[in-house]
Write a protein that binds this DNA or RNA. Structure first.
Length: 202
DNA sequence: GTACTGATATGCT
DNA sequence: GCATATCAGTACC
């Protein structure tokens, strides 16, 4: 499989979001290689999207990286305890991003299990196995993604995405937990792979 | 399986 | 001060 290149990311968040489904997110560190298949995403369309951190052109230390060209990560901390990973898309000064909401664990399950529960994979209950990476905060823990990876270039070798040609149906639905976003909360900007058991929520 | 609660960084008013 | 792009633990079906 081939690593996705810069041009893949330099399009609107909605286009990139749909095409990210089924692709492999890879994190290499300290001799570990963790891989998860992207099964659920949400598009955040920047300036015009009330749900986006960059709505109305808001620009702070936290949101700065979204103003870069596509192909970088935007990692932010939420509720004081958890991280969420986004993929920055589009061009410079167009602050769009795709939130990764769920992964299917592919490689490095033992390491993911230790990152999440401090236990080996064999010791996990069925419930814990299913919950390894099926939510934005959970997958960050499992993949060992934190603030130090904010602004990381996905065209490097530390964190990147592999292409994958797989056929599946894409389900369109409303985004999660953005009730404050008025009319924007009803936009169908959340996409997931139909029938995959590792997505976060109906 | 659902319902409730608490943890607490960042940016806004 | 207050709200948020969340999750785990507990209690109860």
């Amino acid at each position: 499989m081939k690593k996705l290149e810069r041009n893949f990311y330099k399009r609107s968040a909605i286009e990139v979001a749909k095409e990210l489904l089924g692709k492999y997110l890879v994190h290499e560190y300290k001799g570990n290689k963790l891989i998860g298949k992207i099964v659920e995403v949400e598009a955040y369309m920047g300036i015009e999207d009330k749900a986006a951190h960059s709505y109305g052109g808001r620009r702070t230390v936290r949101t700065e990286v979204m103003y870069k060209e596509g192909g970088y990560t935007y990692v932010f901390q939420i509720y004081g305890m958890y991280y969420c990973v986004n993929i920055v898309t589009s061009e410079v000064d167009i602050p769009q991003a795709v939130l990764i909401r769920a992964l299917e664990p592919i490689e490095g399950l033992e390491e993911m299990s230790r990152n999440r529960y401090k236990k080996s994979y064999e010791e996990l209950t069925a419930y814990q196995k299913k919950n390894l990476t099926n939510g934005p905060g959970k997958l960050c823990l499992a993949m060992n993604i934190d603030k130090t990876l904010n602004g990381e270039d996905l065209c490097n070798d530390r964190l990147y995405i592999l292409d994958n040609k797989e056929k599946f149906n894409i389900v369109y639905s409303k985004r999660i937990n953005i009730d404050y976003a008025e009319e924007a909360k009803d936009y169908l900007w959340r996409f997931y792979i139909e029938g995959n058991r590792y997505f976060s929520k109906k």
